[in-house]
Design a protein around this nucleic acid. Structure first.
Lengths: 345, 345
DNA sequence: CTGAAAGCGCTTACAG
DNA sequence: CTGAAAGCGCTTACAG
């Protein structure tokens, strides 16, 4: 049976509304609403007439209108750094799965590490009245979200803590993971270990550096400041930095990479190096085990970050008046070869 | 200045509305609307009073309500296979960037390769009245979207063609790419080449197989049916299949991998193999150049797929009454070593 | 079992 | 320059 077309051009293309269905079925608007929502109290005969009208007109309920009246949009907003970054893929998917289990859809977008863009995106999501917001911070001042949170937007920060406001945050144990990774290199006999990490204004970068320093200190090892470098993770800078640490009279014999982008660049640098240099990287990545040597990493569970954060979000949405918490997820050292190389010479 | 809290619990938490702002500023509702939307015709003094009221109440326009009245939601829906799949990351991001350039937000979700879930998700997006829909098909019958498209939902299919309906589709040149990749192996001297690909109901799988057969035929080479295998890309199946092709009296000396998941598994299989076996894979992947040998691939431009599809979407949204097109994007052979290994013996 | 009226928070079309 | 009324497509609260 062909769908009948309507003569007038409406908004939303030319969709039939409940009113149209009601008219065609010869019933009241509320009865259509009952049938569409599976509410009780409609005779089988009436229900059948309504269903036929729905079918004939190709009616599909406008959830945007529904949402306006109901007050909840069944939508979760996710602000991440980059939709294309493989690290956030599993996190993204985990958020989606939890949201889906609660019947909610996901609106997401990238901040591109730009605090202004993060803000713009987060506030646009609030304007759409998402029920909850999950934010991977790019900026370090989130006071702009305070009115939104007070107005009822459940908000959870992931991967990095919120700046200057008190809110739920779900993190990996960046400090402990880095400390263990560096201790692993020390256990292999290294004394001169380089640390190459992200910009110092990024929380994970400084936490991981703190782990490095703590492990060195615990082993009674001095740290030359030339072994430590925070900054851009662009390949050019990382390569140059690493080259500097490998040159001179007291070269490093091992590297700890502050994140996966740094790790990958260091793999390239070390492949061109004559002597073997050990490497442990923060963050696991696909195919790390296929390289020769395999790359030893401190792995975080990105999917768990997303899952825990979204669970927390829906706890708040369920009405629990919870105090803000900081949840820290453990990391896992995965030894594959590169971190077990002994010091050269 | 602290935001005043309202006594009554409203929907959407307890947000002030334009009506509240109007009351506080002592103006009409429409005047608030004018100020909020930057429309002309408000005296500076009135405008100032409205701004103060907005500030004091912490008002933020409800875009959900706005959208109901305006008819367009400034939202694009994206149905992909898996939010966590690195292949779709750049595509996802490209769709976001184009949407953002048009002032639209992105709702996305995973079909998990399940046609029912694809349908459910796509229709949920239509119920939210997304302006447009980008679909990476999991199923092969998309007639369920016909009423939606007729009702004005701009729809573009990506990566795989739509099933049983006439619609825009943006694809890579799967046939030509595979043909060139296999020809590359033939040029290196191979005569017995295995093809391991995805399930035969997946369009890209059969197109790439067609490319394989065409290249073999063009070179006058026979194809033993034992060299060709379509099916699950699960590592267990791919490994077993590859082992079979490498055993026996006339083993293959090279593989063409039908997609990146197959490629990765084949890399593992071949690493354990005594003799060198050549490999060309469809789809590029991060670090392919860092493996030894580097992996030769037929690369598709996932970001371009997303960009072209979303551009098309917004052309339709701009009102152009365009006939459905099929856009095919070229692939690129990237030689890195594994595809240039000569036949053993 | 059924439906008319009011309202969600905005914008549109119109009048002053 | 300004605002009251109607309406977007639904649901809620109520009456019959």
């Amino acid at each position: 049976m062909p769908h009948s077309r309507r003569a007038t051009e409406h908004r939303y293309g030319n969709r039939p509304t409940m009113k149209d269905v009601a008219a065609r079925a010869g019933v009241g608007l509320k009865t259509v609403s009952r049938v569409v929502n599976g509410e009780p109290g409609v005779t089988p005969d009436t229900e059948k007439r309504v269903h036929e009208a729905i079918e004939a007109l190709g009616f599909r309920r406008n959830d945007s209108a529904r949402v306006l009246r109901k007050g909840r949009t069944a939508t979760v907003g996710l602000v991440l750094e980059d939709l294309a970054d493989p690290f956030y893929g599993p996190l993204n998917r985990a958020v989606e799965e939890v949201a889906r289990a609660h019947g909610a859809l996901l609106i997401n977008g990238s901040s591109a590490e730009d605090p202004d863009r993060e803000r713009e995106l987060a506030l646009a999501l609030c304007a759409r009245r998402v029920d909850g917001l999950i934010v991977i911070p790019a900026g370090d001042d989130h006071r702009y979200l305070e009115p939104e949170m007070r107005a009822g937007v459940a908000t959870v920060f992931v991967d990095r803590p919120a700046g200057r406001i008190d809110a739920d945050v779900v993190l990996s144990d960046n400090f402990g993971g880095a400390r263990d990774g560096v201790a692993h290199l020390i256990a292999a006999g290294h004394r001169r270990i380089g640390f190459v990490g992200d910009h110092p204004h990024i929380h994970t970068a400084t936490e991981r550096l703190r782990g490095y320093r703590t492990a060195m200190e615990a082993a009674g090892l001095p740290v030359a400041e030339s072994w430590v470098s925070l900054g851009s993770t662009a390949p050019a800078r990382v390569s140059a930095t690493a080259a500097g640490m490998l040159a001179g009279p007291g070269p490093v014999t091992a590297f700890f990479a502050g994140n996966n982008r740094v790790t990958v660049t260091l793999v390239r640098v070390l492949a061109a190096e004559a002597r073997p240099v050990a490497l442990v990287g923060f963050d696991d990545f696909e195919l790390a085990d296929l390289l020769r040597p395999g790359i030893t990493v401190v792995a975080q569970d990105a999917a768990a970050l997303g899952r825990v954060a979204t669970d927390r979000l829906f706890q708040r949405l369920a009405g629990a008046d919870l105090p803000p918490v900081r949840l820290e997820l453990p990391t896992r050292l995965v030894a594959r070869g590169s971190g077990e190389i002994p010091p050269a010479g």
